[in-house]
């Protein structure tokens, strides 16, 4: 366990450093996928394979690929390297990082975590899975969030259709 934790931690942190320090946007995006994979590994260690699978599916498989698409479509392939101007904002970055560190340390150390729960495999049936996801029986806020995200997706699909629609005539 310690070995796996060390490997995953160094992988996520090393890749995260690579995202910030590399001078090449494509390398940054690839490092980012490595960092996401490390975090998925943490979820596997915590016996949450569902979270790990969704982490890989959404962040590695979708977000990184879309970012890479964006970079490759907006830059000419003939340029020798995909460089960007890196903004050097040391001070704001430091403040944000320190604030995040304080916040996370507070959550981990000071906050009460309630009783100890044994990690399990998670529900086997999709029915319980969905009920947990929607918070059936608990606070009903998750159902609302689900519907809000559904509306958001619907709007984005309609927007994509409108944007990519072929113009039938001038000014159409």
């Amino acid at each position: 366990m310690i070995v796996a934790f060390g490997f995953l931690a160094s992988m996520s942190l090393g890749c995260a450093l690579g995202v910030v320090l590399s001078r090449n946007v494509i390398h940054s995006a690839l490092f980012m996928s490595g960092s996401f994979l490390g975090i998925a590994g943490f979820f596997v260690m915590l016996n949450a394979p569902a979270l790990a699978a969704f982490q890989v599916l959404i962040y590695v498989g979708a977000v990184t690929v879309v970012i890479l698409f964006g970079i490759m479509f907006t830059q000419r392939p003939s340029v020798s390297s995909f460089r960007t101007i890196i903004q050097r904002q040391h001070m704001p970055g430091l403040v944000v990082a320190a604030g995040l560190a304080v916040f996370l340390s507070y959550i981990v150390s000071v906050q009460e975590w309630g009783g100890q729960t044994e990690p399990g495999q998670g529900p086997q049936e999709t029915a319980t899975f969905g009920e947990n996801l929607l918070g059936v029986g608990g606070p009903e806020i998750f159902g609302l969030l689900f519907q809000v995200s559904a509306v958001l997706l619907m709007v984005s699909i309609v927007a994509a259709v409108v944007i990519s629609r072929r113009k039938t005539d001038e000014g159409g």
């Binding site: 690839l30 394979p49 569902a50 699978a53 982490q55 690929v65 890479l68 490759m72 529900p123």
Partner: peptide, 27 residues
Amino acid sequence: LNVAIVFFLAITSISSLGIIMAGYGSR
């Protein structure tokens, strides 16, 4: 796994990353 199908979909979605890496890396 209790989410084997999602695992399959997640892992196969990584392979597009490999293709992009090959395409970009060869310049």
